[in-house]
């Protein structure tokens, strides 16, 4: 293998690695974008609040309900 052939092989190997990497990244991003869109559209979330009170007995201290 002469010098030109070696150079060609190195360039081709680098090119293939870059192409495969690009394709993998693009597929991942496309999937993530789709998931993001579906997530923001169909997601149901919730927030909560609390109602509180204390009820004292108005019949306290009596017998048979007498105040």
């Amino acid at each position: 293998m002469n010098e030109k052939q070696r150079l060609a092989v190195i360039l081709l190997v680098i090119a293939i690695i870059l192409l495969v990497t690009s394709v993998v990244i693009e597929i991942s991003i496309a999937g993530a974008q789709k998931a993001r869109e579906e997530d923001s559209k169909g997601r149901v979330s919730e927030a909560t609040g609390v109602v509180q009170l204390e009820i004292l007995s108005s019949k306290e201290g009596g017998v048979n309900g007498e105040g």
Binding site: E46, A47, T48, V50, V51, Q52, L53, E54, I55, L56
Partner: peptide, 16 residues
């Protein structure tokens, strides 16, 4: 009515 401290949780569910 019931006596003592009474508590309830209200929930707001939401979506786009």
């Amino acid at each position: 009515s019931n006596l003592g401290i009474l508590t309830d949780t209200v929930t707001i569910t939401y979506e786009a």
